[in-house]
């Protein structure tokens, strides 16, 4: 699954763009990249603990924001690090008929710059909404273990997902996300 770490051209702590054919794959990719900032050898994470995370939102952007935030929260609250197992996401294979476009005005980032602030329009609530009365629902199986400095090669402690330049959108060639993390 493709992704691109942003960094050479910014002073952000950690940022990336990801692409996928469907939303489920996009969410998976976004967590895998976030995890790779936290732990440099994620393949070493054992499956000692198994949990299920269920989230709902009428905005696919807020759903991704909450999903990544939930796993970061568990890193501190449970002192565990998780990989993704089964992931199911309903309601978002395509924008619903009355969907609102993403209003950030964030361009495709051809030069890799994160330039939400270059938008001339005001921005508001998150875009790509499910149809009226509908919602996106995510159920993720997460498997992992207690953080262990002896075995996990720590990278940087990612502590939050920012809304800065945060984007989830359906493009001609599939789903796209841009995520800037705070460390």
């Amino acid at each position: 699954m493709p992704h691109r770490i942003l960094g050479d051209e910014t002073t952000y702590d950690a940022a990336f763009e990801a692409w996928a054919g469907d939303l489920t794959a996009l969410f998976r990719e976004c967590w895998d990249v976030t995890l790779s900032f936290l732990v440099e050898n994620p393949e070493e994470i054992r499956s000692d603990a198994r949990e299920v995370v269920t989230l709902e939102s009428d905005s696919v952007e807020l759903l991704l924001f909450e999903f990544l935030g939930e796993l970061l929260y568990r890193k501190d609250a449970e002192e565990r690090v998780y990989r993704l197992g089964q992931l199911e996401l309903d309601g978002g294979s395509a924008p619903a008929p009355d969907s609102t476009p993403v209003t950030d005005g964030v361009g495709p980032g051809q030069d890799g710059r994160v330039d939400a602030e270059e938008s001339s329009a005001g921005v508001g609530e998150p875009g790509v909404r499910a149809g009226r009365g509908a919602s996106y629902r995510l159920e993720a199986e997460i498997v992992g273990e207690t953080l262990d400095p002896e075995r996990h090669c720590y990278g940087v402690d990612v502590k939050a997902v920012t809304l800065y330049a945060f984007t989830v959108e359906l493009r001609d060639d599939g789903w796209f996300a841009r995520v800037v993390l705070d460390t």
């Binding site: 939400a116 602030e117 938008s119 329009a121 005001g122 921005v123 508001g124 920012t162 800065y164 945060f166």
Partner: peptide, 9 residues
């Protein structure tokens, strides 16, 4: 409130 960047919420 109209803002230019959601991080300015």
């Amino acid at each position: 409130l109209g803002i230019r960047d959601r991080e300015l919420a």
